[in-house]
Nucleic acid binder design. Sequence first.
RNA 1: GCCGCUGUAGCUCAGUUGGUUAGAGCGCUAGAUUGUGGAUCUAGAGGUCCCCUGUUCAAGCCAGGGCAGCGGUACCA
Length: 509
Amino acid sequence: MSSKKADKRPEARLPKGMRDIEAPELRAMERMLGTIRRVYESYGFEPLDTPAFEYTDALGKFLPDQDRPNEGVFSFQDEDEQWLSLRYDLTAPLARYVAQNFDGLPKPFRRYQTGPVWRNEKPGPGRFRQFTQFDADTVGTDNVAADAELCMLAADAIEALGIPRGSFVIRVNSRRILDGVMTAAGLGEDENARQRLTVLRAIDKLDRLGIEGVRELLGAGRKDESGDFTKGAGLNAAQIAAIEAMFGFSITVETGADGLRTPKTEGQFPKGFPSIADVPALNEGLTEVGQIIALVEAADYGDRVRFDPTVVRGLEYYTGPVIEAELTFEATDESGAPVRFGSVGGGGRYDGLVSRFKGTKIPATGFSIGVSRLYSALQALGKLETDAVSGPVVILAMDKARLGDYNRVARTLREANIRAEIYLGTSGMKAQMKYADKRGAPCVVIQGGDELARGEVTIKDLIEGDRLSGEIADHQAWREGRPAQFSVKENELVEAVRSVLARHAKASG
RNA sequence: GCCGCUGUAGCUCAGUUGGUUAGAGCGCUAGAUUGUGGAUCUAGAGGUCCCCUGUUCAAGCCAGGGCAGCGGUACCA
């Protein structure tokens, strides 16, 4: 029988696409962020933090013809009716910060930043509405050395996290190459803007759908397994062949007698289309990617960074080189099904983002790691020490009148750098033992009337006790035998606890 | 947004052609055991059978509508 009162109780539940992160993951995540931070710091980037929300117009998310914030971002109105939005990445707030503080900043300005971002989209497996990014950006230079550096930074960060060389690749392309190819294919005019977007989306899906699927999307369209039809770009066979020709473009680096490296590009369109040298955007794009490849090869990153004309990235603001960090190994999930991790980070050059706020041109380039995705990958690779922190030593509250003494015991352990806590509940000894077990305590400290009278403390090694329990079937014997416990004088407490901790550190290491 | 699948205890699930008081395992709480986490045994708590409407003497089961979750797809700064 449910009362009306009960019906009014709120349901304890998470908003969809949100999640709680508990101690083991939180600790592993923090170690991971520390590793990435050290790499970013080593390249000279400075930390910056900005607020979770910004004025919506500063984030640049207005629909062209509507006075309301775009869907996809969480927005609300301030008391003065101005629209505010939760940040959906860390780049837009950076652009605002740089524009606002431009005169006082060193140029180029280099900063790193991590924190949660929010997107109001349908959540999926491994996709949440709140997630963490870790960005490094260089603002105020159009030097491709900045883009090349980001490729190396990405490789260093991923490797520092324990992903071995050969299990990941940093793929580089340029938006100008894509634009040039589309121009060559006859899609350069303004009226083809929509078609160009469709073409980019189709190319972006090459790794997932294969060449056949991309052909369908470039042509009439494609029907997926669920029966849903995706309209294609409507290109003719010759145009499709021209786009496909791009997949064969290559860049090689030649080292001359003087030790200087010169990039050499190769590729050609089918008959009836211009040569690549005759399309300015394409030429510039290949040149800048060639320079990046030459720079990373000179620094011995050539095995981890390579040109890939199918990299597209976001459609909205990239203007030059685009980079994507991809994991190339496969793993299996709990049910044994294969999982591909794919992209764990990306970025590129966005020359228009800061300029939105100022009249002058301020080029910028950046790279962003998708922290949660990378975390799942590390987990699948077994590169996370999730149990690196053991539970605290639990001091049993045997006698309430003696809480003062127990506090002294706790303090002694803490001063010796040992995590320790007094049982703070009100239940009896049995429940306290269960509590210590559940907390993952390596041992408990027992000081009841017997020990007090002798000036001693009893230490029970829970891990050793658990092991011994396998050999004891009879509960009476288990209980009365008091396995894995011993008593020492009060002043030997720290030493005794340390010996227990050391025993298990060895056993697990 | 579109397509498909699934909704029964905290979790995983069973539930007969529609038939009385809806079950199991695990988990949880307590006792056997007043100073001992495991094992064993016993007991207990825990249910809007997703919601609404309909069919029927009778609905967890049938029909219609809705909602939610999952999977795929689209979009993704």
